[in-house]
């Protein structure tokens, strides 16, 4: 189960922090290995999204380390983290609504200095609906398609790792399945993904591993399959009873 330090893409080592004087994370540890989908689940207020924001330099950590490919990126400001190849898709306001789909993707490539057009074409191949609507203002798209724009925008950088904060929040079950399928597609292109999800069952099904956070601490961890089978996890977070 444990990989060597060098292989790990992202590692959170006993991080402690919060907003202002309110401490939310009391020593959270997790890691993402190459090619993995890792899901963070847990009750509301457990610090799931906060842990993700900590990676992206959006809150000040008073303790612990965040490492990207072994390099210390603890408390690095967000624009620098982007330059290091970490892309973050927030839960809400994750697209520029008045820009067209294509302009959104172009902005995703803002820090690139090389020609981004081949990458744009690749992403249109992965997300055909976006190619169709490339000249349309992103704000006019449906919820599911907006999520596609948000993810494609982040993928423009060919990131080392993609952070997704509740990508299916507020979507109908039909779109939810679609988004999980897209997450798998994106992951299949080689990008590791760390994802916070409320729809724990569905998320664990596509995940390699998962972490359960409670009160800002690690509670359980294991493979997606193991967590789905675990009676205690199932009872607490998956809506009762282990699946048959």
């Amino acid at each position: 189960m444990s990989n060597s330090e060098l292989q790990t893409v992202l590692e959170l080592d006993q991080i402690i922090g919060g907003y202002g004087d309110t401490q939310i994370l009391h020593g959270v540890s997790m890691r993402v290995d190459p090619g993995e989908i890792v899901v963070i689940i847990g009750p509301n207020g457990a610090g799931k999204s906060t842990a993700m924001k900590a990676v992206f330099g959006l809150l000040n950590l008073s303790g612990g380390k965040v490492r990207l490919n072994g390099e210390d990126i603890t408390n690095m400001p967000p624009d620098q983290v982007v330059h290091h190849g970490v892309c973050y898709v927030p839960q809400t306001s994750n697209i520029f609504p008045s820009l067209t789909v294509e302009e959104n993707l172009e902005m995703g490539a803002f820090v690139r200095t090389d020609d981004f057009r081949p990458r744009l074409q690749e992403l249109y191949d992965i997300f055909p609906p976006l190619a169709e609507k490339r000249r349309q203002a992103a704000g006019t798209l449906s919820g599911g398609q907006r999520q596609m724009v948000a993810m494609a925008k982040a993928m423009m950088l060919e990131p080392q790792i993609l952070l997704l904060d509740e990508p299916t929040a507020g979507l109908s079950p039909k779109y939810r399945g679609e988004i999980f399928a897209i997450v798998k597609t994106v992951n299949a292109t080689g990008t590791p993904i760390l994802m916070v999800e409320q729809n724990a069952k569905q998320a664990l099904k596509i995940a390699n591993r998962g972490y359960v956070l409670v009160d800002g601490k690690n509670k359980f961890e294991g493979s997606g399959h193991d967590l789905l089978e675990d009676a205690e996890v199932a009872e607490m977070f998956l809506g009762g009873g282990a699946p048959p």
Partner: peptide
């Protein structure tokens, strides 16, 4: 549109 997202996107 969104100064926060612009920063997260890496826009200078």
């Amino acid at each position: 549109d969104s100064p926060e997202l612009a920063k997260l996107t890496g826009i200078d």
